[in-house]
Amino acid sequence: MADWSIDGLTRARPQALFIACGALARELVDLKRMTGWAELTVTCLPAHWHNTPQKIAPAVLRKIRAAGNRYDRVYVLYGDCGTGGELDRMLEAEGLERIPGPHCYQMFAGTDAFTEMAERDPGQFYLTDYLVRHFDRLIIKGLGLDRYPQLLPDYFGHYTTLVYLAQTADSRLRDKAAKAAERLGLAFEYRHVGYGEIGNFVAAAAAPAQAAE
């Protein structure tokens, strides 16, 4: 393990824990590799809990308590994700912060860019790499459209465009996202946004460890 110095003392490089939504697991593993932050541990909660957001804050708290004193720093990579402020209240009581933003769409696109998109066309439906990969399971089957296709207008009748906020330049995912838009009867827009504010957040957290190598 690399050593780092602070206040003239040499110590082991800090161990850090990222508690995140399972929809961000692949991206966090990629960012861990890209930053070379070997001492970073990633633990995730089920992505489908967005459908039951009341589970998120208690589960994050259990992860925090289970971590005990084994880590120098703990970071939370979650939006509010429908918790109605419960996640923020819990983290404030624990003395921890999460990445800013209400959801991962804004985090990936960037706050200014997402605000501009949403104001330009409030009828946009967003997909990320994760949601494109699991579109059939999470959207079609998750909403019951495989069994009740007549519900499609009820769910998507007020949307105009499917916007694919891509983390990676994967032509297969782009094609799959375009087919998803066609299946939902929506126009298609592709934006390669990369890791956005999530990448910036991880890089900033990793910077003290990297600077000490």
Rank of each mutant, 00 (worst) to 15 (best):
D121R: 10
D129G: 00
Y105R: 06
T52W: 03
A203D: 09
P149H: 06
L131I: 00
D170V: 01
H50T: 03
H134I: 05
L152R: 15
E86N: 11
L173V: 04
D136M: 06
F114M: 14
E119L: 15
I99K: 00
D154H: 14
S5T: 12
D72C: 00
W37F: 13
T128N: 08
D7N: 09
L96R: 02
T168A: 11
L87D: 09
A181F: 09
A12V: 11
I19N: 04
R120E: 13
K176R: 15
Q54R: 11
L173E: 06
P122Q: 13
L28P: 04
G196E: 01
M34W: 09
K179E: 15
A67Y: 14
G123Y: 01
R13A: 12
A169H: 10
A23H: 11
K141S: 15
A206Y: 00
A203Y: 10
P102A: 14
H103E: 14
Q167Y: 02
W49M: 14
H50N: 07
V163A: 10
M1T: 05
V29L: 12
G199Y: 07
L45H: 09
D3V: 11
E27W: 03
E197A: 14
A207V: 06
Y159A: 05
Q106C: 01
L96A: 02
R33K: 13
D170E: 13
R98N: 06
A169G: 01
N200A: 15
D80R: 13
G196N: 13
D30H: 03
N200T: 12
D7H: 08
G8W: 08
F114L: 12
R13N: 04
Y71L: 01
T115R: 13
A181D: 14
N69F: 06
E116R: 15
Q150N: 01
A177L: 04
A38H: 05
A23F: 13
